[in-house]
């Protein structure tokens, strides 16, 4: 066995895992604050990538400005989706809300295809292109930098979550909505905040993913793998999303290289089925106690 090659493949997997973790955090953020399982997360990510194309290539703005606008656009998207489609179903059957997010994902895919057509696109060059070596192992520079950026964003986010007022309000709402409301926390505003932040994170992940492998209207499938990540990690666990993201990224890379690309998803979804059968609440998730 070629250990150096395995190491390189593993590094590439970790790079991809970073993006899973980033999107996973966005997903968990929404789930923790609003208890919504958002199947449209992959499409929100896709919209982020296309907004970047629109601002950066279409309108030829400076790239740093295009990134900022795309991130803000992602946040706005999250905010608008929550206010228009999710908020009215507050307190309804969670299955209805879930199906609404399925509908939303379909709408987003269609809109992107109408505006940008269904053909794959490449993004303006954003990340440095100098080759990177860790020891003897080569890492694709895009993968390396996207991992570094994802890790940095997650770190900033975790700090915000812990120390910023809004972050504290989010955590309070997540652990007990009624009590948070009684303590004067503006819970509806927290919902908006969670969706907007998640939209921003997803857009960021979308730009990075697009920078690595280009954008297409089927990018949202990435969201399905993210779904696997968060379920393996535990729906309400940020730590779980991070670890499972890296783990699944690694498994996918290794399976893809050694068995062939079509085995990637087979592996992820098989892992999902096993976790659902053995430990449905995930590695780090909270097990809910049923009541009569």
């Amino acid at each position: 066995m070629d250990w150096l090659f395995l190491f390189e493949v593993s590094l590439a997997g970790l790079g991809r895992g970073g993006l899973y973790a980033l999107t996973g955090v966005a997903f968990v953020l929404i789930y923790k604050a609003t208890r919504v399982i958002n199947l449209a997360i992959g499409e929100m990510l896709m919209v982020g990538a296309y907004l970047f194309i629109g601002f950066g290539a279409g309108m030829a703005l400076p790239l740093w400005l295009a990134v900022i606008l795309a991130l803000l656009g992602g946040a706005l998207l999250g905010f608008v989706l929550e206010r228009t489609a999710i908020r009215p179903l507050l307190g309804e059957n969670p299955i209805s809300v879930f199906m609404v997010t399925i509908g939303l994902s379909s709408v987003l895919v269609g809109l992107v295809e109408i505006i940008w057509t269904a053909n794959p696109r490449s993004l303006p060059d954003l990340l440095p292109r100098d080759p990177i070596f860790i020891g003897d192992a080569f890492v694709a520079p895009k993968t390396f930098w996207s991992f570094v950026i994802a890790a940095g964003v997650i770190a900033v986010f975790l700090l915000l979550f812990r120390f910023w007022r809004g972050g504290v309000a989010l955590r309070a709402t997540a652990s007990d909505q009624g009590a948070a409301y009684a303590m004067g926390i503006n819970v509806p505003a927290v919902y908006s905040l969670a969706w907007a932040l998640a939209g921003l994170l997803a857009a960021g992940a979308g730009i990075l993913l697009g920078a690595i492998s280009g954008a297409s209207s089927s990018m949202g499938v990435f969201g399905l793998t993210v779904l696997v990540v968060v379920i393996v990690g535990g729906l309400d666990s940020v730590l779980g999303a991070l670890l499972a993201g890296v783990l699944i990224g690694w498994v996918e890379s290794v399976a893809g290289v050694y068995l062939g690309g079509e085995y990637e998803q087979l592996f992820t979804f098989s892992i999902l089925l096993v976790v659902l059968l053995v430990r449905p609440w995930g590695l780090f998730g909270t097990r809910e106690i049923e009541r009569l």
């Binding site: 509908g103 379909s106 895919v109 269609g110 295809e113």
Partner: peptide, 18 residues
Amino acid sequence: LSPVRTVVFGLLIVGFLL
């Protein structure tokens, strides 16, 4: 045609649920 169809399917799901 195809993307419009996708959008309409999505809107129907969301609209009816709401």
